[in-house]
């Protein structure tokens, strides 16, 4: 076993400044993960040249791969840093912020665009008023199985980071929001605005911007069947496509 671990970190001091690489060497701890390495650097922010530097900034919350906050590009591939185990990673470990979002500082990015996409597709259950609407519709087990899987999305950004069609310069909604529109279009109450969600998906930046590269489904840490969701929403907008031409 090695005594130390080397990390190459792509850093950026502010939203507008240029990025630069900095190397850190820290003591090796068995079964540690990338976040614990970052914590070590935070406790003793000295780079490999022995210079004292500002601690590396990153985001994290749950530390168990359910919140999505700690997502970054590790050895060239996007993943949650809390569940990226040092023992399983090739060394030296390279850490970069996600490239599809504006960098706030170092490894912390602003994923506002993803949450904006959820707002655009109205990824919520619509209920009007406060009066008692009675019990909701019963859902079948098969329905639950599909919906539960889709509901595991943590808006982490892996899918859009890996997507060749999603870039800083366009406004593609991305696979996560498309998949969430499927979840809410199948919900017994939320489906009352299903058509509005389809309208959003049929605008610029909508589902037509997907190029079927299928990287999203490979990159999703929650194994959400994203290409199935894209195909399902493709089917729903196809229906609307013909309805618009022949019935609207």
């Amino acid at each position: 076993m090695p005594d130390t671990v080397t990390l190459k970190i792509k850093r950026q001091d502010s939203e507008t400044s240029d990025s630069y690489w900095e190397t850190f060497t820290i003591p090796y701890i068995p079964r540690s993960n990338v976040i614990s390495c970052l914590m070590d650097i935070q406790a003793n922010p000295v780079n490999a040249k022995g210079e004292e530097v500002t601690p590396v900034v990153w985001e994290s919350n749950c530390l168990e791969e359910v919140c999505g906050a700690c997502t970054m590009v590790i050895n060239g591939k996007v993943h949650q840093s809390c569940s990226a185990l040092v023992d399983q990673l090739e060394k030296p470990i390279s850490l970069e912020p996600m490239s599809k979002f504006p960098v706030v500082r170092d490894l912390a990015v602003d994923r506002a665009r993803m949450f904006g996409a959820l707002k655009k597709v109205q990824a919520w259950v619509t209920a009007d008023g406060y009066h008692d609407l009675g019990p909701g519709e019963r859902e079948s087990t098969s329905h639950q199985e599909v919906a539960y899987k889709l509901s595991e999305c943590m808006t982490c950004g892996c899918c859009v980071e890996a997507c060749p069609q999603y870039s800083l310069s366009n406004n593609f909604l991305g696979a996560a929001a498309i998949s969430q529109s499927r979840l809410f279009n199948m919900h017994p109450t939320a489906k009352n605005i299903a058509d509005e969600r389809l309208d959003t998906l049929m605008q610029k930046g909508g589902i037509a911007d997907c190029g079927n590269a299928q990287n999203c489904v490979e990159a999703c840490p929650k194994s959400i069947p994203l290409t199935e969701s894209i195909a399902e929403m493709g089917r729903q907008v196809s229906g609307k496509f013909w309805r618009n031409i022949f019935q609207a």
Binding site: G76, K77, A162, C163, P164, Q165, Y166, S167, N170, G211, N212, A213, Q214, N215, E218, A219
Partner: peptide
Amino acid sequence: ETTVQPSYTYFSHLLY
């Protein structure tokens, strides 16, 4: 309009 991302070496990405 696409972004080149060679580190994602999946078969479907190659077909893309």
